[in-house]
Amino acid sequence: MHFETIAIHDGNTPESCTGSVTPPVYQTSTFARPSLDERGEFFYSRIGNPTRSALESTLALLENGKHATTFASGVAAMMAAMQVLKPGDHVVSSLDVYGGSYRIFEQLMRPWGVETSYAASEATESYIECIRPETRMIWIESPSNPLLQICDIRALAEIANERGIVLAVDNTFASPYFQRPLDLGAHIVVHSTTKYLGGHSDVIGGAVVASDDNLNLTIRNYQGAAGAIPGPWDCWLISRGIKTLKIRMEEHQKNALHLARALEKHPAVSRVIYPGLESHPQHELAKRQMSGFGGMLTIALKGGLPAVRKMIESLKLFVIADSLGGVESLVASPARMTLGPLSQAERDRRACTDDLVRLSIGLENAEDLEADLLQALATI
C-alpha cells in the first residue's frame, strides 16, 4: 500500500466490540488475566498497551522497518537507542546536532564511560577520520538542527557495515514521508514524535524503529525496564496526527520553499539555508536520498544578534517557541534558545552564530507568512 493509506488504516481498524471507526484509548494500568496461570497479550501497560501497540505498528510500516518502540519523549527514545552501547564504547556523532542529543552524549553517556567524537556533519571523510577500534555507533541528524546539513546516509551505512558499527539516524526533520533511512542502509531510526509525526504542538513523544531483531530486543527490553513509555492518550494523539502526515508535509515543504526563495533576495538576509534551494551545498545529495525537503529553514541576518532580536520580536504570525513541526509557524534563535545552554566556545565550534534564525514553517497561507517576515525584516 501507499504511504498515506498505511498512515490512515494501519492500527486503525474499527474496534471489534462496538464498531467504533476511531480506535479507543485504552486508559488503563492493568488488564484482567483469564486465570492464575494465564495472561493475555496485554497484562500491564508499562509492558504493553493496545493504543501504544497500534502506533508502533504504524510507525514501523511507515519507516519500512520491522519493529518500532515508542517512548515518552524524543530524548527518551535516543537513550533507548544508546542501550546498544556499553562502557568503553565510542560514538561518532554529527557536530551539528540537537542540543538535547549533545547533552546526552556529554552529561549522561560520557560519565557512564562512552566517549563521543564529533564529525563535520556534511563530510563523510570526517566520520572515517573519527572512527576508532572501539567505535560502536555513528549517530547522525539529516537534515541537521539547526544548520540543515545533509549526511550521505548510504555512504555512512556502507562504512558502518564494513566495520560492524551501528548507524543511527535522527529522522525528525525529514519525517518518514520525505526520507526512509532504513532503506538507505541505516540500522536504527529515531524520531521525536513531538514534531511532524504528532504535528499539532500538543503532545510529547519519541520512537525508535529498527529491523534487526537483536537491536530491537535491546531497545524493547529497555522500554519495559526503564518505563520511559508514552501514555495512551499521547499515543492516540500521535496516531491521529500521522493520518494527515502526507498532506501536512507537502504543505510545509511548499510554504518553506516559497519563503526560502523570497528571503534569498532580501537585502537584510546574508544567507538562506534550505536543502530545496540550488544554493544549498548538499542540494544534489538531498535530491538523491530524500523525496522532499521539509518545512525547516534557517537564515542569517546581516545585522547579527541585534537584528535577530528586532526581527523575531516584530513577527506577528510566527510564534517564538523552542519546538518545531507544528501546524503553526514558529521562530527561534538557536544561539539564544535551543543551543543557549552550550558555552560560547562550543557554539562557535558548531558555527551556531548569533545571526541565525530558525524558522519552522507552518500551514498558514504562504503569502501571509511572507508578508509577516517582510514587515519584521523592515524593522531592522
Rank of each mutant, 00 (worst) to 15 (best):
M1A: 09
I247P: 00
N12S: 15
L263T: 04
T135Y: 10
V319R: 15
P146H: 03
A80C: 03
A168R: 06
K254L: 09
A32G: 03
I229F: 07
A174R: 06
G294R: 05
P111L: 10
A120R: 11
R349P: 01
Q107Y: 05
S20N: 06
R180G: 07
I128H: 04
C352P: 00
N12K: 10
L85D: 10
V357Q: 04
C352I: 15
K66T: 14
E4R: 13
E106Y: 01
R33C: 10
I320G: 02
S175I: 07
L285S: 14
A60D: 02
E313M: 12
E367I: 06
A120G: 04
V92A: 04
G164T: 12
H67I: 01
Q83V: 04
L374K: 09
S57L: 11
P87K: 11
L237M: 14
L317Y: 11
P87M: 13
A68N: 01
T116W: 07
E284A: 15
L36S: 06
V308M: 11
I6A: 09
K86S: 15
E115Y: 10
L237W: 12
I219S: 12
P181S: 08
S73G: 08
T218M: 15
N365P: 02
E250Y: 00
R110F: 05
A366H: 09
L359F: 03
V327R: 11
S121E: 04
P281S: 02
L182Q: 11
E129G: 00
A371V: 02
V308F: 10
E251W: 07
S201M: 14
Q149Y: 07
S20H: 00
E56R: 04
K243D: 06
Q282N: 14
V272A: 01
A60S: 09
F178L: 12
Q375T: 10
L59E: 06
L359V: 00
A60V: 05
V308S: 07
H2D: 12
G11T: 02
S211P: 05
R336C: 07
L184I: 04
N64E: 13
N221W: 09
D10S: 10
A123G: 00
N365G: 14
G206V: 08
I138W: 11
N12I: 01
H67T: 03
R350N: 04
